[in-house]
Write a protein that binds this DNA or RNA. Structure first.
Length: 365
DNA sequence: TCCTCTAACACTTTTGAATCGC
DNA sequence: AGCGATTCAAAAGTGTTAGAGG
């Protein structure tokens, strides 16, 4: 499995009264299963969110290097909206459906091993397998709350702190990976995503081999769902529409959306991590049809992350219009967001910075 | 009518306690 | 008694899909 390096910003760290910030400039984070992420990213990753919480697939797994062996660190992860839009799946592609809903309560997932010394974090990769996503804004289980049909990317924080209580004052560094951008959904929209998940996710083995068991499933007449099942599922138009199929007509370049932001395919050409990791993906499927939908390569700039508080997003200025690209949640007046022809799924680089400023003044634990 | 969300389903994998053998 | 390997049931997690609701 190849890893995607998240290279720290080479700009000098801010002055630190302790001087510690300078010692962290060599910290690096790698995305462990980046090939798998890219496979999904090529199609347009979708993550199921449910009321009771659903794990991510692919899940986030990263490795760290450059930490101080004996210093304690807390590793955290949160989800950041990619843009100020809500989306809908229409005619086999994503389209803008309007402005984003007001942000749900922002939560941060703390890696269960935290706090732990740098040697521990560097010994093996960190898995965020157990993190769950929910659309329940009243969730009491600590799951990360997202809006369905909105787009997010995970962000990782490495904070030097001896306990969870001192995290807010510890120097921190933030990383993100462009290929981990996803659309939160309550039911899969793109059948290609479904197929890819079934082929890679062991829990979905029951749905493998070209068709689902639900086709063969014989619901008992006494079961609640059997009472609901008044129509034969396999032949229904909806089931045909949703069913992954090898014979599905591939999208052509003429089927590309012609207006506004579209997300049917997120090209690797836009991915800065490819510059670090450029070998071709060993994919089981041919997604060349999606690559035809790729817009021109876009610049990929680095930005400094600023964590002083909840970023002003979404704002009233963010309109679902091509004329006003979304503002990067981490952007500042000093480092404004880039101007892109599309609301780019990842209009910034893996953002890193060390700061002496309090972290996550808005987070809930 | 369209779109989104929910709950129940069948199935697989994971987890952890109990048991066994050395 | 202690340790590691094995077994097995329960729990957890998966995508599917009909129906509800806006």
């Amino acid at each position: 499995m190849h890893a995607t390096d998240s290279v720290p910003n080479m700009s000098l760290p801010r002055n630190s009264s302790t001087g510690e910030a300078f010692q962290h400039s060599s910290v690096r984070m790698n995305l462990e299963n980046s090939d798998l992420w890219k496979s999904f990213h090529n199609i347009g990753t979708e993550m199921i969110i449910t009321k009771h919480g659903r794990r991510m697939f692919p899940h986030c797994s990263v490795s760290l290097s450059g930490l101080q062996s004996f210093a304690n660190y807390v590793i955290m992860m949160d989800m950041i909206p990619v843009d100020g839009y809500k989306y809908k799946w229409k005619k086999e592609q994503w389209e803008v459906a309007g402005k984003a809903e007001p942000q749900p309560p922002c939560r941060t997932y703390v890696h269960p091993d935290s706090p732990a010394p740098g040697s521990h974090w560097m010994k093996q990769s960190l898995s965020f397998l157990k993190l769950k996503l929910t659309n329940n804004t009243l969730d009491q289980h600590g799951h990360i709350i997202l809006h369905s049909m909105h787009r997010y990317y995970p962000r990782f924080h490495v904070v030097q702190a001896d306990s969870l209580y001192t995290v807010r004052w510890g120097p921190f560094q933030t990383f993100s990976f462009p290929e981990t951008t996803f659309t939160a959904v309550t039911a899969y929209q793109n059948p290609k995503i479904t197929k890819l998940k079934i082929d890679h996710n062991p829990f979905a083995k029951g749905f493998r081999e070209g068709g689902t068991h639900s086709h063969k499933r014989c619901r008992t007449s006494g079961s609640p769902s059997a009472k609901r099942a008044t129509k034969p599922a396999p032949e229904s138009p909806q089931s045909l529409k949703r069913m992954p199929s090898h014979t599905e007509k591939p999208l052509t370049s003429t089927e590309q959306p012609q207006k506004g932001p579209h997300l049917s395919a997120w090209p690797l050409e836009q991915d800065s991590s490819d510059r670090l990791h450029a070998e071709p993906l060993d994919l089981e499927y041919d997604y060349s049809c999606e690559e035809q939908m790729v817009p021109a390569s876009l610049p990929y700039n680095s930005y400094r992350s600023v964590e002083y508080g909840r970023y002003p997003y979404p704002t009233s200025e963010v309109e679902p219009s091509n004329e006003q690209p979304p503002v990067h949640p981490l952007s500042t007046a000093e480092y404004p967001a880039p101007q892109h022809p599309y609301p780019h799924p990842y209009p910034y680089s893996n953002t890193v910075d060390w700061s002496q400023h309090p972290l996550f003044s808005y987070s809930c634990w």
